[in-house]
Each structure stands twice: as structure tokens, then as C-alpha cells.
């Protein structure tokens, strides 16, 4: 019961998705679309689980006075602020995403700057990691280093000042060799995904049940 039913559900759902793809007529025609909607609904409920986990972890941290417990108050405050403004805006305007709403105020003045600065900060860490990792010790490492340098120079005016063709070479690197490498990786990943899907549907792969 605990293992058999989930395996049967997986098999039936996966099998029906495949059948619906090959027989695009009623009653199976819109089954894939319907399943995607149901998937989104179930996903919405998992957000509640995530929220619960976040709350429990931080409340526990505060009650047990673990290191940095004061910051958990900040996290809970931020969470409560957005949830309260979200539901308040929802009730007031019919949608939380109304530009005049307090929810969008929080989004524009808190979430956007925090997110943008957090990602901007990564520029420094990527650069310092690259400085340590990108030593031209081997031929392959040199290729990586040169390709990265050309693409970086090709994106800024100084690159064009050094050599007018650098932006052209940079674009070529992105559009031809990078595309080929990326495509090779992607095809491999997708083929792996197809094999894994087949294993899951047939019940050979069961690790998701543990």
C-alpha cells in the first residue's frame, strides 16, 4: 500500500501523458494540459510546506538561542511583512500585483534592490574564484582563459579600443563554439532525462519514494 500505490500512480500518470501525446483527440487530447494545471495546483500546496519548514526552523533557532538567532527575527519580520501586504493588497485591489499596492511597494523597494545587489556581489566572487582557478597550466585551461577574456573584452568599449574586431570574435565565440558545446551537453542531458523517465514510469527507478 505504502509503496505499490505510488508506483501505480506514477505509471498511470506517465503512461497517460505518453498516450495523450500520440492520440491528440478527446477524451485524451487535452490530458497533458490538464495534468500540467493539476501539477501547478499541487505545487502551490508544496509552497505551504516550504513556508512551514522555514517558520519552524527559525522559531526553533530563536527559542533555543542558537548562534545568530536575532537575525531569525529579521527573517520572520520580512516574511510577515510581505505576506500581510500581499493579502491586504489582494483584498484592496483584487490582485497583489497592482502597482500602487503596498505589496508592490515592498517588491520594488526591498526585493528588487536586494536581489540585484546580491547577484552583483557575485561578480567579485566569480572574479576572485577565476583568478585562483584560471591558471594557464594546460592547453585546455589556456583555451578557457582566452575565451573568457575575449568575451569579457568584447562586451566593453575598451575591447574595441584594443582591437576593433574583438566584439566580432566575442560574438563568434558565443554563437559558434559555445553553442556547439552547449548543444552537445543539452542533447546528452535530455537523452539522459528520457532514459530516466522511462525507468521511472516502468517502476525501475524508485529513489523518489524514499
Amino acid at each position: 500500500m505504502k509503496r505499490e500505490v505510488p508506483i501505480i500512480i506514477t505509471f498511470l500518470t506517465g503512461f497517460l501523458c505518453v498516450i495523450a501525446f500520440f492520440i491528440p483527440h478527446p477524451p485524451l487530447g487535452d490530458l497533458q494540459q490538464r495534468f500540467l494545471v493539476w501539477y501547478a495546483i499541487v505545487y502551490g500546496f508544496t509552497m505551504v510546506l516550504g513556508l512551514d519548514s522555514l517558520l519552524k526552523y527559525n522559531v526553533k533557532k530563536i527559542t533555543q538561542r542558537k548562534e545568530g538567532w536575532q537575525y531569525s527575527y529579521v527573517l520572520l519580520f520580512g516574511l510577515a511583512l510581505v505576506l500581510v501586504t500581499g493579502f491586504q493588497s489582494w483584498l484592496k485591489y483584487g490582485t497583489p500585483f497592482e502597482l500602487r499596492s503596498s505589496f508592490m511597494y515592498c517588491y520594488i523597494h526591498i526585493i528588487v534592490p536586494l536581489q540585484a545587489t546580491m547577484f552583483a556581489l557575485l561578480a567579485f566572487f566569480i572574479s576572485s574564484a577565476a583568478y585562483r582557478a584560471f591558471r594557464a597550466r594546460t592547453f585546455e585551461a589556456t583555451l578557457l582563459l582566452v575565451a573568457a577574456a575575449i568575451v569579457m573584452l568584447g562586451r566593453v568599449p575598451i575591447g574595441k579600443m584594443i582591437w576593433s574586431e574583438i566584439p566580432v570574435v566575442s560574438d563568434w565565440l558565443l554563437n559558434i563554439p559555445q553553442l556547439a558545446a552547449k548543444r552537445g551537453i543539452q542533447i546528452g542531458v535530455y537523452l539522459g532525462g528520457v532514459v530516466m523517465s522511462l525507468r521511472i514510469i516502468l517502476g525501475i527507478e524508485r529513489t523518489y519514494l524514499t
Binding site: I9, T10, V18, L36, W38, S197
Partner: peptide, 13 residues
């Protein structure tokens, strides 16, 4: 299992 089944079915097709 339901969500995994959907993902697997879509990945196959």
C-alpha cells in the same frame, strides 16, 4: 508520485 509521473511522461514526449 503524481508529479513525478507527469514530469516523466512529459520528458518522454
Amino acid at each position: 508520485s503524481f508529479t513525478v509521473g507527469i514530469a516523466a511522461g512529459l520528458a518522454l514526449t
